[in-house]
């Protein structure tokens, strides 16, 4: 597992620290683990952290049942904080290791026309190992949709 695939592409990635995983459960240690993996698979120079981050990160607005609460307008207003954080990184991909975060940030990108994609770790790990199948790329952008396929 390495970041050679991204040496020339130089695609930029940022990382969402899920509240449940980091602040509420395992703390900064888990946040550091995620950064270790991220840097290994996309390259250190292609990882751009949000500010603030780790245990001090902002919730994306997808948690606590917000996605199912019927309060769409408020949920997006809440998520604007996250959207602005992401836009400030300039990254074209957000790694979201939580399903609520994944759904919410996906919606934020669509709604505010941020243009960034949202991916799981499992997609990038397999991509970096050259074992990501062609049907397993639903969340990748056009730049990686066919990357590494024969």
């Amino acid at each position: 597992m390495n970041s050679d695939w991204n040496k020339d592409l130089k695609i930029k990635f940022t990382l969402q620290d899920p509240c449940q995983l980091v602040r509420k459960t395992f703390g900064d240690e888990a946040a550091e683990d995620m950064r270790y993996v991220t840097k290994k698979i996309v390259g250190e120079e292609n990882f751009i952290d949000m500010t603030p981050n780790k245990s001090n990160n902002y919730c994306c607005g997808g948690g606590g049942g917000f996605l199912q609460s019927g309060l769409k307008e408020q949920r997006r207003q809440y998520g604007k904080v996250k959207h602005d954080q992401i836009m400030a990184t300039g990254a074209s991909y957000v790694i979201a290791p939580c399903h609520n975060c994944h759904s919410q940030i996906h919606d934020l990108s669509d709604h505010f026309e941020g243009g960034y994609h949202v991916v799981h770790f499992w997609t990038l790990i397999c991509l970096s190992m050259g074992i990501l199948g062609e049907n397993e790329r639903g969340h990748l952008g056009p730049d990686l949709e066919e990357f590494g396929l024969d």
Binding site: R23, S55, Y58, C59, G63, G64, F66, S69, L71, Q74
Partner: peptide, 16 residues
């Protein structure tokens, strides 16, 4: 107040 459904209980308030 419906605000209880807009708070995600993310605990950042406790953290700070």
């Amino acid at each position: 107040t419906p605000w209880v459904w807009a708070c995600t209980m993310c605990q950042r308030c406790i953290y700070v």
